Simulated assay, not measured.
Amino acid sequence: MDKEKKTMIVWTTTAALLVEAALVITSLTPLARIGNGTRFGSGGMWINLIWCGSCYFLPLIVYCMDVRAMKYVLAVYNAVWLIALPILLVMAVGGQWEYLRRDGRIYPSLLLMAFVCLIGLIVQVIWYPMCLRRQKPR
């Protein structure tokens, strides 16, 4: 396996796992109890995890079978999470701020959600130069 594929596998897997972690942690926060939120262990949570994982890993598998165009499919999906992760980050920080103001309580799940979303956002941004740079021809 060449260096380009290894780099793509490592960065895409890291990005996917952080997004999956953000989804699971979000389902553990008090925000999941508002409205029809996806609660931990619910069918909706599992559907979200499977959908998200398949959107990352199916193109990655096809890319590893030497279909180079799949890296651009992954770039598009990565861009979707570049929009979603900051929204989740703002929801976590805003939710924690509101709960702290209203109840005087600190929710570790909201702080963890904010941290994972921030790390995920950083990885998503770094993914582009790491995975889309042109490799030197051999």
Rank of each mutant, 00 (worst) to 15 (best):
G53S: 09
G53E: 05
G53R: 04
S54R: 08
S54F: 15
S54I: 13
S54W: 10
S54V: 12
C55L: 14
C55M: 14
Y56K: 03
Y56D: 06
L58F: 11
L58V: 15
L58M: 14
P59E: 01
P59L: 00
P59C: 03
P59G: 07
L60K: 03
L60T: 06
I61C: 09
V62D: 13
V62E: 08
V62N: 10
V62T: 12
Y63H: 02
Y63M: 05
Y63R: 01
C64A: 15
C64V: 13
C64K: 05
C64I: 15
M65K: 15
M65W: 14
D66K: 12
D66S: 15
D66M: 00
D66P: 11
D66A: 14
V67W: 10
V67F: 11
V67K: 14
R68G: 13
R68P: 04
A69I: 08
K71C: 04
K71H: 05
K71M: 08
K71R: 15
Y72Q: 05
Y72D: 04
Y72C: 07
V73S: 09
L74A: 03
L74S: 02
A75T: 08
N78R: 13
N78A: 12
N78L: 10
A79Y: 09
A79D: 10
V80S: 10
W81L: 07
W81N: 03
L82Y: 00
L82F: 06
L82C: 13
I83V: 13
I83D: 00
I83P: 03
I83L: 12
I83M: 07
A84D: 06
L85W: 01
L85C: 00
P86V: 06
P86R: 01
I87M: 14
L88S: 14
L88M: 11
L89C: 13
L89Y: 11
L89V: 08
V90R: 09
M91L: 13
M91Q: 14
M91W: 15
M91K: 14
A92E: 05
A92K: 00
V93P: 03
V93E: 05
V93T: 04
G94P: 03
G94W: 04
Q96L: 01
Q96H: 04
Q96S: 06
Q96A: 00
W97P: 00
W97Y: 11
Y99T: 02
Y99H: 09
Y99M: 10
L100P: 03
L100T: 10
R101C: 09
R102K: 15
R102W: 14
D103S: 06
D103V: 08
G104K: 04
G104L: 06
G104P: 04
R105Y: 10
R105G: 06
R105A: 13
I106R: 09
I106G: 00
I106S: 07
Y107H: 13
Y107S: 11
Y107W: 12
S109F: 01
S109G: 03
S109K: 04
S109V: 06
S109D: 09
L110Q: 01
L110N: 02
L110S: 01
L111N: 06
L111F: 07
L112G: 00
M113K: 07
M113D: 14
